[in-house]
Each structure stands twice: as structure tokens, then as C-alpha cells.
Measured scan of single mutants.
Amino acid sequence: SIVTKIISIVQERQNMDDGAPVKTRDIADAAGLSIYQVRLYLEQLHDVGVLEKVNAGKGVPGLWRLL
């Protein structure tokens, strides 16, 4: 499923980069989806406690990390 793919992308990127959070844009590119589509999935995963959003604010790139 797309959700499983997104989780594995975040996991893979974090492992490659010493646990650093992953940008929404990088996840979207790797999943082959638009940034808006991916954001909806990321928000859902956040709501159920799978991911945390590391930063927030208007015009700030979203950074995500697995919990």
C-alpha cells in the first residue's frame, strides 16, 4: 500500500542520514506522488502516532520522523 511505502521511505532515509528527519518533498519524490497527496498521508500517520512532525510554520518545509 502507499502508506507502507511512505513508512519504508522515511525509515530508509532516516537510516541513511543518522536519524535525521525527512522532508515532505523528498518523501513525495521517492513515492512518485505530489507533495499534497503525501502530506495527507503523513498527517494521517501522525494522527495515529506513527510519525512526528519535527517542525511547523507557514512556508517551512515539513520534516518528519518515525516514532
Rank of each mutant, 00 (worst) to 15 (best):
V22L: 05
R65P: 01
G49A: 02
D29R: 13
L42E: 00
I27M: 01
K53Q: 06
G59E: 07
G59W: 04
I9L: 05
L51P: 02
D47C: 13
G59L: 05
G49M: 03
N15F: 11
V50Y: 05
G59A: 06
D17W: 13
T4V: 10
I7M: 07
A30R: 07
V50A: 04
P21E: 02
T4P: 05
G19T: 04
E43A: 06
E52N: 03
D18H: 14
E43S: 05
R65Y: 08
G62W: 10
A28N: 01
I7H: 03
I35L: 11
K5T: 09
V50F: 05
G57V: 06
V54I: 10
A56I: 11
K58N: 14
Q14K: 02
D17K: 14
A30Y: 04
V50E: 01
G59D: 09
Y36V: 13
I7L: 11
Y36L: 10
K58W: 03
V22C: 05
V10T: 02
A28E: 03
A20F: 07
W64S: 00
S8Y: 10
Q11A: 12
T4H: 13
L40M: 12
P21V: 06
R13N: 03
D17Y: 15
R39E: 14
M16A: 12
R25F: 06
V38Q: 00
L33N: 03
M16V: 08
P21R: 02
V10Q: 00
E43G: 06
V22N: 01
V10R: 03
A20S: 09
Q44D: 07
T24P: 02
W64P: 06
S34R: 06
G32L: 04
I9Y: 13
A28Y: 02
E52V: 08
K58A: 13
E12C: 11
S1E: 12
Y36I: 11
V60S: 14
V3E: 06
D18L: 10
L42K: 00
V48G: 08
Y36R: 14
E52R: 04
G32P: 01
A20H: 10
I7N: 00
V48L: 15
Y36K: 14
V48C: 14
I9D: 00
L67N: 13
T4D: 12
L63T: 08
A28L: 02
V60K: 15
Q14Y: 07
I7P: 01
S1G: 11
R13L: 15
I6A: 01
D18T: 07
A31M: 14
E43F: 06
P21I: 04
R13D: 01
K5S: 05
K58T: 12
G59Y: 06
I6G: 00
K5D: 04
I35K: 04
L67Y: 11
V48N: 12
K53R: 11
S34P: 13
P61L: 11
I35Q: 05
R13M: 12
L45S: 00
T24Y: 01
E52Q: 08
D29Q: 12
L63D: 06
I35S: 05
Q44N: 07
S34C: 06
L42N: 00
A56C: 12
V22G: 01
G32D: 15
G19H: 06
A20K: 13
